[in-house]
Nucleic acid binder design. Structure first.
Lengths: 143, 143
DNA sequence: CAAATTACTTCGTGCCACGAACAATCTCAA
DNA sequence: TTGAGATTGTTCGTGGCACGAAGTAATTTG
């Protein structure tokens, strides 16, 4: 019981730690946290606004602004969907893709450093549990 | 190697999951994430603006506004420090304290639920690793 | 006591997120 | 086919959050 409490509180603290790290790396790459998160979602394919807002847990109206600003910075473009004239597909520009890779590289480097002191066995177990928790997570949250 | 990568990516995903949960619970308690975090720091004692901004990794000017809004909502008060007339001590009001407890209770409940499916042994190990990573974390971040 | 330091606030800027209201387009069923 | 209803995305107004530069008041230090 007490361990579970410890886990809850530890989880929160780790979350803020990683969150700060995330923001920090974003700074180095001239990306806000929201932008970085969006670029990650666009890594391998174009995505419509509706689907993207679902992925990021954002209202569509929020996403509009986010994409606007990212587009102004040349990270992203809006493309027309030939099958649906209402729809818009958001796509990474080459520059956006480059920024994403820089971000990802630095982020994983810093995260690896965070876990570097762990013995290999413990780290592997940790990763396994991590993935299990994510996989079993009840959808996203209650919207 | 691959496991470490998995750990890094898993860590980020879990972080966002918990972050959303955190914001969600905040909503239920009529607290923003920043407010909730601040209330947690004030749980057991009054804290000056400078120290508080250090804890929350915020510029002082940012904190001024945060405290302003929290004060307007009656969660917090500014008190004079008798030993230093420049200084201000931020303190929870009874109402702020009540909000904090509601928040904490609901948060740990939801987090426990997140880990509920884990076998006890795995959960304990997870908690242990969690705390170890936090303890060894290199200060906060590079400011 | 004068200069440097510290504690906090103010102001201006920009990003982020929400919800309500709206236009354009698409779908489906009568 | 056509008209009601759903879906896609945007605009607008509001509010919160965070930063940095500049400023005020009080304290410390040489």
């Amino acid at each position: 019981m007490k361990e579970t409490q410890g886990a809850a509180s530890g989880l929160v603290r780790l979350t803020f730690l990683v969150q700060n790290l995330y923001a920090d790396v974003g700074r180095d790459c001239d990306l806000t946290a929201a932008q970085a998160q969006m670029l990650c979602s666009l890594a391998d394919r174009s995505i419509g606004m509706a689907e993207l807002s679902g992925m990021l847990c954002l209202e569509r109206s929020s996403l509009t602004g986010l994409v606007d600003r990212a587009q102004q910075r040349g990270l992203v473009v809006r493309e027309n969907d030939p099958h649906d004239r209402r729809a818009v597909k958001v796509t990474l520009t080459p520059e956006g893709s480059k920024a994403l890779h820089r971000f990802n590289d630095e982020l994983t480097e810093r995260l690896d450093k965070l876990l570097a002191d762990l013995p290999a066995t413990e780290r592997d177990r940790f990763a396994k549990t991590l993935n299990r928790v994510i996989a079993e997570a009840p959808a996203v949250s209650g919207h």
